[in-house]
Design a protein around this nucleic acid. Structure first.
Lengths: 156, 156
DNA sequence: AATGGTTATGTTATATTATAACGCTTGTGT
DNA sequence: ACACAAGCGTTATAATATAACATAACCATT
């Protein structure tokens, strides 16, 4: 059984857990999880698919929420490690375990069909790459692995 | 000695080789390396740093070259494997070995200071990740590794 | 509860990156 | 020469993201 059985799960539980973790983490760090930030995080957690910034903006029911507001919230959430940015999609995804910050960088499987994103934590792989990098004199700061392909569902 | 001694090398040679390889490859594949495409490839090969699309556009001395022209050339060069797109930078880099298409996906070291990009080919790492991916039922199509950090020069 | 500093948000404008759509030109095979 | 496909020019616009400055909310200290 993998960490994420996406097929058939009570997603409300995912959202609830994520929001609780976020609240705790911000409490601990002494940073403020304001309404806007909370709202953006909730919207991102509507599913396990990566979400685009302008989709978030449109989902604000008030209709008056402007790009900078949302981008600022996204920046905050990124800084706190509550979400990740998927560069190859220009999109954002909730982090399921914002508490332990990752030594092995960000590793994600990205479905090209449905944009489902699942995290990996293959520590071996990244240390192999880090070694290769160091061998060339490069100082590794932030390894990112984005594996594109098809999720189980979309392999129909 | 690594593949790229960036510090002190005759870069004209890099460009020349790249252009020759490109010509050969296109010949072989029966696709046309037109003037625009050649020009864009040359401009990208002005250095080993990733180059932004709009910088390319501005570097066309005629001044009349418009975005679609350059983006079409970039699309062509990407399709032929003559360049790579660095998602985390929205930028492009020449591929030093467009002839053998890579089973281990794209792996690059990206300097956050100077945007120097160097390719890796750590086959092990990617197979480790691919295994982990397969274990979750994911079908890997295109693994991408972008390691951010500091190149030798920029570690001052 | 007033004061003042810091943090967060609102607002307007604009920068940056990329593509759609359409018509013309050029190349290629017959 | 002809027809078809591929490439390019041109205009407009979509999609993504940030700068700059004004206002408001928070909160620590008086």
């Amino acid at each position: 059984m993998t960490e994420h059985a996406h097929h058939q799960h009570n997603h409300n539980h995912c959202v609830k857990t994520a929001m609780e973790n976020a609240a705790l983490l911000c409490e601990e760090k002494g940073v403020r999880l304001t309404d806007t930030r909370k709202r953006v995080l909730e919207l991102i957690w509507q599913g396990h698919e990566a979400v685009k910034a302008y989709d978030l903006i449109q989902q604000f029911s008030d209709g008056g929420t402007k790009p900078p507001t949302v981008y600022r919230a996204l920046d905050f959430l990124l800084e706190q490690g509550l979400i990740h940015r998927i560069d190859s999609l220009n999109a954002f995804i909730g982090c399921p375990h914002p508490d332990h910050h990752d030594e092995c960088g960000l590793q994600v499987l990205v479905c090209d069909e449905c944009h489902l994103v699942e995290e990996l934590h293959t520590h071996d792989a990244v240390s192999t790459i880090a070694d290769a990098a160091s061998a060339t004199g490069f100082k590794v700061v932030r390894p990112v692995v984005e594996v594109h392909g098809l999720c189980e569902k979309c392999q129909a």
